[in-house]
Amino acid sequence: MPGNKPVLIIGAGPVGLVAAAALVREGIPVLVLEAGPTISTEMRASTFHAPTLDMLDDLGAAPEMIRQGLKGPILQYRQRDHSLIAEFDFGILADVTRHPFRLQCEQFKLTRILHDLLQTRPGYAIRFNAQVTDAIDHGDHVEAVLEDGTRIQGSYIIGADGARSAVRKSAGIEFEGFTWPERFLVLSTEFDFASIIPGLADVSYYADPEEWFFLLRVPGVWRAMFPVAAEVPDEETETDEFARARFARILAGRDDYPLKHRTLYRVHQRVASTFRKGRLLLAGDAAHINNPLGGMGLNGGVHDAVNLVEKLARVIRGEADEAVLDRYDRQRRGVTVEHVQRQTIQNKKNLEAKTPEEQADFRNRMAEAASDPAKAHAYLMGMSMMNSLKRAAEIE
């Protein structure tokens, strides 16, 4: 190993800590540089797909996640009047995964679980209040420059520092794509929607040409997501009146759900022009961002980290040439563009279909897939991101 310098991981979010756990398991030292004063407590993403859980199980994190989370075995698509378009049971994937369900578990729980596991393992170090402003590739080693001028050397840098990644910017890598004109509003409430909507699944998407939405149960609360038109001022979305009006559209005559949490954010579809530049490597939101319909962003980031570490560990141990890192770029960037971006864009188009013909096409496609076990299995292989992993493995 080159001078026993640690791999520098920028960002202690789920992707950064998955990369850290995977490297430490390989016997490779890491230093995680986190801008914040502690592990983040933000709710943010909360959906974990079956293959992601398999990977996290290999790292020792899945059992505690399952204990703290909520299994969602059923996925539903509904119309605004609550009539069922289609229902899928993830149990049908038991032949290809150890975890045939979606797990609803806020991402801050995963980061804490991983951090706790790593603190007992040699080779793991983390530094808080360490805002990285520059990442430099010196050819035979790297250097991270902190906001206070401190310079830290390492063997490689993994930029897991989010959509505004300093690592990506330092490397001069373009972040190609677009921003949706509407924003997404997430409202959380302790009210149990299943008590007033018969047969409601823990993961339910509502198609509507005027205002689609989805309902997602996580431990203790339901999260409801709505699109917000570009012309609506941010300040208006922050009012209780606006929240009540959104809630009122879920079920006629009800708007009195207690509001526990509210988040408004802009939604992007962007992919870095490359995931590797020399010894500077990107993963997670630093490499790609997409709309949250389908829960593919965080999961794709975990898949990046696991794929990257498998290759990087071999390079560091001298078992493979650095060129194998280009395969990481080809595989993960390839499936991000080919599968994740395309699927998340299509998910949004399905829910907001405007014409009667488009709406009927979506209903018919979903109903047909749900009615046939083989087609249901194929559909969930895509939704759970297993197909994207299979495709990545095929890319040389």
Rank of each mutant, 00 (worst) to 15 (best):
T189C: 09
G154K: 06
G172W: 02
G162S: 10
F191P: 03
G172D: 08
T150M: 13
G159H: 06
V186Q: 12
F193D: 07
G162E: 05
E176D: 13
A194K: 11
A144T: 00
E176Y: 00
D192K: 12
G149E: 08
A144F: 03
W180L: 15
R168Y: 09
S188H: 11
E176Q: 13
R183Y: 00
E147Y: 03
I157E: 02
Q153H: 11
S195Y: 04
E174Y: 01
I197E: 12
S195T: 13
Y156H: 13
F191T: 05
K169E: 15
W180R: 14
V167T: 08
G149M: 11
E176P: 00
F178M: 14
E174W: 01
A160K: 07
S155K: 05
S195N: 10
F193R: 05
F178N: 11
S170V: 05
F191K: 10
K169C: 06
D148L: 11
L146G: 02
D161W: 10
I158V: 11
S155H: 05
Q153E: 15
D148H: 04
I152A: 07
T179H: 05
V167C: 08
G159P: 04
S170G: 09
T150S: 13
K169L: 15
T179F: 02
D161N: 12
A160V: 06
R151Q: 10
P181T: 12
G159D: 08
F184T: 03
F178E: 14
E174I: 02
F193W: 12
W180V: 01
I196R: 12
G149Q: 08
L185H: 01
V167W: 00
F191A: 15
S188P: 00
V145D: 06
R168P: 09
F184I: 12
K169G: 01
I173F: 02
E147C: 12
S188W: 05
D148S: 09
S170I: 06
G162W: 04
G177D: 08
I157P: 01
E182N: 15
V145R: 14
S170P: 07
W180A: 13
R164D: 08
